[in-house]
Amino acid sequence: MELPKEKLLEMYKTMVAIRGFEESLAAAVTAGVLPGFVHLGVGQEAVHVGVCSALRPSDWISSTHRDHGIILARGADIKRMRAEIFGKVTGYCKGKGGSMHLAALDKHATGCNGILGPSQTINLGIALALKKKKQADIAVVMFGDGAAHRGEFHEALNLAACWKLPALAICVNNHYAISVCFDDACAVDDIAARAAGYGMPGLVVDGNDVMAVHEAVSETAKSIRAGKGPALIELKTARWRGHFEGDPQPYRTPEQLESDKKKDPIVRFSTQLLEQGVATEAELKVLQAQAGKELQEAIEFTEKSAYPPLEEIYTDLIYEGRREVR
């Protein structure tokens, strides 16, 4: 697996940008300027960037409410992302989607989904459309270990396999379904083991290693594009923050959290880049500074943006008319 230096550095910068973006949201919640539920993916940057860096721009991806990072990694405009989360009219969904329903259709990101589970059957529909249109693209859905226990998971895998759809299901196993520990809720140790029940390949991948994620998704996407049918990948990772901002996390110990933080995917990737001579410390610092500057510009953009006008409160709520899948 060989990737050009430019791509590797872009992956690093995106990971840093996602971390900064999410941490700035945490600070905003703490400061009381960002109301509502916010679910952050701090610690899961290797998942976001590893998956998206392996996909084509024309592929489609659906995700959960912890996947701001997925949409950023698809190349979404960080200004419009932040504006959306703050309910501003300049946001991707004119401020009406917010954190939990943020979509960037221009990036083929159908969006975060507040209901965990149904995104898997939504993705099934996208995959069916791609197959009917004979397009070489694939439809990817991200979901957590909790959603893997819902009926939609089994229904979607079964139907995707029956119809041999170009669908890739990616379970982001961060070990906690809200407050329920994976070990207490799952009879097997790998969600990926369930793939065998639907006659498809299932892979377990270290979700804290961006290159391992990239390689697994690249090879899986290649297999799906070759018409070999759907697949299931399980990315084992950890979330560093609570289920939502403000979650006191009585279900895990500070020691567990510290242990998870030792597997920091950004530190791991930067070490790999330095060890292999791909980048110097100075080059990485430049990228960190660029990401920080872009975040600051997004913060200022959001602050200057207006809220949607009251007269538009009922527009954009119900889709009217039929539109072709692009």
Binding site: A193, L203, V204, T220, S223
Partner: peptide, 16 residues
Amino acid sequence: KDIRRLVAYGSVFDNH
């Protein structure tokens, strides 16, 4: 359980 289940035709050896 590694990626050779996908890039090759290895069988999954599940823990059961």
